[in-house]
């Protein structure tokens, strides 16, 4: 193996490509290769290739190989990679408007959220990245968030009072859990299995996919399929580089992306029942909690976050039914 093969590679840094030129893009993301996002990235690569007759290609760097999300964004800014799938959770630390997507119970199904990504307000949120020199191209969804509990069947938010729950360290998510009286903790993912097994935590905010791949069903008895939040990543690119691309190539990129995103949503939606069954078969009790139970928490969230920015307010107004 050698380091010598990068000469032939046209890295993204060579700007001003004319249409008709061969180009290999680099895309980085944080998930392992069995995750829907990686499959969507692969689909994006296939589409790029076929729509450009082999002229445009994609190299994928999965599983945080190139660093944390902060790194990936930085590398997109500097131009060493071309695309990143960056979670809205991370982006909301840089562009607070992305917190809008974490409105609890905003969307009943993945398809609904996927429709919402095409709306003007969603696009306005994307363009809030432009002042950072980043082009938010589109949203890509993973499975919705569910709640996993070790040995207490939570039926109402009141049951969550005092529970220690692992929640992604993102303010809107943690605020939602805090409003139920739970104590959210931002434990690193690799420690979660052991932490719930031994009782360091009583449960977690997760998606069905990771509950299966990380075998949390072995150590947690209850899975409440609340689908209370969506989990979008944002496909971002370097703005000036993207806008410097020939019109034709830009269209190929956005069309390919659209195809990959639709593919991911369709595939993941079809898996919902399968995942629930798989967890049941592995001894986890899968049940639902009515969104009505969370009325108080929803109102509290809407109120606090509507005050944070007019964009968030508009987003909540549009999608809260």
């Amino acid at each position: 193996a050698g380091c010598g093969n990068s000469k032939e590679k046209t890295t993204g840094s060579s700007s001003g490509n004319k249409s008709g030129e061969k180009q290999t893009f680099k895309l980085a993301h944080i998930t392992p290769t069995d995750h829907m996002w990686h499959k969507a990235a692969e689909k994006f690569g296939e589409e790029l290739k076929s729509r450009s007759d082999g002229r445009l290609e994609l190299e994928i760097y999965p599983a945080s190989q190139l660093g944390t999300e902060a790194d990936m964004v930085q590398q997109i800014e500097s131009g060493s990679i071309d695309f990143g799938l960056i979670t809205a959770a991370y982006l909301s630390a840089r562009a607070p408007e992305f917190a809008a997507w974490f409105m609890p119970y905003g969307f009943t199904t993945l398809e609904e959220a996927n429709e919402a990504r095409k709306s003007d307000i969603s696009k306005k949120i994307l363009s809030s990245l432009e002042e950072q020199g980043l082009k938010g191209l589109d949203y890509l969804f993973a499975g919705q968030r569910v709640m996993i509990f070790k040995d207490k069947q939570v039926k109402t938010p009141a049951d969550m009072n005092g529970l220690k729950l692992r929640v992604t360290p993102s303010p809107p998510m943690q605020d939602f859990y805090r409003s139920t009286g739970a104590a959210p903790e931002g434990l690193p993912l690799p420690e979660v299995y052991a932490a719930i097994q031994t009782g360091v935590i009583d449960g977690m905010d997760m998606d069905l996919d990771a509950t299966i791949t990380n075998k949390y069903y072995e150590v947690a008895k209850y899975g409440a399929v609340t689908n209370h939040m969506v989990w979008p990543s944002v496909v971002i690119a370097n703005q000036s580089k993207f806008e410097g691309m020939p019109e034709e190539d830009r269209k190929i990129v956005t069309d390919s992306l659209e195809a990959a995103i639709e593919f991911a949503v369709t595939t993941r939606s079809a898996q919902e029942e399968e995942f629930k069954n798989e967890l049941s078969e592995n001894g986890m009790e899968i049940y639902e909690i009515s969104p009505k139970e969370f009325k108080k928490q929803i109102d509290e969230f809407d109120q606090i976050y509507s005050e944070k920015s007019p964009l968030i307010k508009e987003f909540i107004k549009t999608y809260r039914k």
Partner: peptide, 20 residues
């Protein structure tokens, strides 16, 4: 060059919201 980038100055830490 990096530390003085405007995009570095808008970044905040995820739980304390401390400037990065």
């Amino acid at each position: 060059k990096w530390i003085f980038l405007p995009s570095v100055h808008i970044q905040k830490s995820s739980s304390l919201l401390l400037p990065m």
